[in-house]
Design a protein around this nucleic acid. Structure first.
Lengths: 333, 333
DNA sequence: TGAACCGATTGAATCGTTTCAATGTGAGTG
DNA sequence: CACTCACATTGAAACGATTCAATCGGTTCA
């Protein structure tokens, strides 16, 4: 029913091998024949069946990316970096969305394994070491983005969360804040652990002040709203004078709730966000935030991935980028 | 080198046909055998080669989505709707990003055609009717999202842009604005055409006032900044007293630039955005915006797509959803 | 003139799974 | 006891492209 090489071959008056060559090794076919084949392809609307091609070739040029949270501008910025690095390389990028859901993450890793992709960029949610190993053993290159895997057996690109946590906290201390609520979770994320740990250490080192953790199941605007509401429920004397939000989405939620409640930012409570996404600067009160080089991270991870694809035995490398503090009105009047 | 059915079969002491049945038609295999096969699969780390499966089966369960602009929360919200509708259906969603680039759009449509996906959701950028037809002729179901194709031969789900344009403009007129700059482009997008056209008609019908178009090559925050700067360059008497931004990203850029320039919003210039994305309410001055039911659109498009997959001859249907105006501080003090 | 060589083309084998007609094995029935 | 019938299993064919050794036809050169 659907045209295949056979049909194209017949119409062009050549063999199927020649059609294939015209498609994949044009230099092996005389210009005249090539032309006839092209004509026949156009006439029949022939589209090669990639399954057959891939089965025979044994490889798939595509690169897969499992995005942790597509609604978070930070991750879409990472994706932008990936695409930029990939442009002109001739490898399509297919994306899947885990949405922090471990089951979906597993399902997509399995799908990518079945598809025998050349490479996969992943920001793992749960325990997927076994799947990543299987993927690698099947010949798929892997680079971990925005994480370091426990076993460190895969190359990774991440941003120094400890430094980020220190920068934010140090800044809050510098502007005179002492009661800092760290808002966001879940706590098991290494991100959270490192940023929070650094905050605690910074305060400790400073000698005065305190940090406490307000957990949340997710890291979105709603989590910020809920967390801020919980803090407002505290008796005035026990409220924080600063909130360190685990990312900018949370910070925006916090800002919204505080503003609605008549709390003055930064006078009553200062807010520091994390990521410095595109919306941080456009917020009601422009957010002080820890800028993560998201685009650069995506590009670096992709560069590394392409190297691993070329040489599967390339040695494992962990690239760690540095964040920087961007001060805006949410912490200084 | 890599385990295949043959190897699993040998280890489990059965034939390859039985292994395949254990995988795809478990009810045809006795529990004991099924168990042995599972064991062998686990032991060998066997992952079926999807290319071979697909070649034989002739179908691919996956659904593809070509996202127009992954950095725009509106489209990620649409994607969320798609995922929600798809959850539990057992069809993986793979996404590709055209980023408004017609070449990339074509490349991904070709990739999806080669992959023989079950269905594709697409928000077309350029002239792709021929490719969509070819895709359909190859047996891939297609639903157009947030557009109606010229020829109307594909089912679509969109939002009434004329109504949206009318709502926004009527509101601006109601709050006493008369000089309205419509900011955003490119003009060839039907979106833009309809919203702008409706704005012009609303003003005309009202009897007084004027609307003019400030074009932009893209619809992002930067476009808003640039457009607003251009408007500020006008002599005070020729400046608008309201800006109708083609989407919220543009509106945020406008807001940023106006605020930095000391223009009072809404006193000097009112701003209406479009989409009512998650960040509109959290903006420096909360944005009045035309809310588009993005999640619902994604869900509806997916529902339609699943129907077309079931019955390729299902009749073409155009679902048009209605936007609604959300009034916030950027238009009323 | 014949051998050597060259580029273009052919066509059968191949990739790894699924499918399906055929076969085997008991259990149940008259 | 012979005969069905149901169920489990087998094994070879098939999916549609690519590959590669073999062939073809023509040119060049000794």
């Amino acid at each position: 029913m659907q045209a295949q090489v056979r049909d194209v071959a017949r119409l062009a008056g050549v063999s199927s091998g020649t059609v294939s060559n015209a498609l994949n090794h044009p230099e092996k076919v005389s210009p005249a024949t090539r032309e006839r084949v092209q004509q026949a392809i156009a006439e029949l609307g022939f589209v090669p069946n990639i399954a057959a091609r891939q089965l025979r070739r044994g490889t798939n040029d595509s690169i897969g990316m499992i995005v942790l949270d597509i609604a978070n501008p930070f991750f879409t910025a990472v994706a932008r970096g990936v695409e930029e690095r990939l442009s002109g390389v001739g490898r399509p990028l297919v994306m899947a969305h885990s949405g922090q859901d471990h089951e979906r993450e597993k399902a997509y890793l399995d799908l990518f394994a079945e598809q025998r992709l050349s490479g996969v960029l992943v920001t793992p949610v749960g325990q997927v070491l076994d799947r990543l190993r299987r993927l690698r053993d099947r010949g798929t290159a892997i680079v971990v983005v925005d994480r370091k895997t426990g076993a460190r057996e895969f190359s990774s690109v991440s941003v120094d969360d400890t430094l980020g946590g220190t920068l934010a906290t140090q800044h809050l201390l510098d502007v005179g804040r002492r009661r800092i609520a760290f808002l966001g979770g879940p706590e098991r994320l290494t991100q959270i652990k490192h940023r929070l740990g650094a905050a605690r250490r910074a305060v400790e080192q400073h000698g005065s002040g305190e940090v406490w953790h307000v957990d949340s199941p997710t890291l979105d605007v709603e989590a910020g709203r809920v967390g801020a509401a919980a803090l407002l429920d505290l008796p005035p004397g026990r409220r924080p004078d600063a909130i360190f939000a685990a990312n900018d989405l949370v910070a925006l939620g916090v800002l919204q709730t505080l503003t609605l409640a008549g709390v003055r930012v930064p006078d009553d409570i200062a807010i520091v966000g994390y990521d410095d996404n595109e919306f941080a600067a456009a917020a009601a009160i422009p957010l002080t935030s820890v800028r993560q080089p998201a685009v650069e991270m995506g590009a670096a991870a992709t560069g590394r991935l392409l190297e691993v694809i070329e040489d599967p035995h390339a040695k494992v490398e962990h690239i760690v980028l540095s964040p920087e503090l961007v001060v805006r009105r949410s912490t200084v009047a």
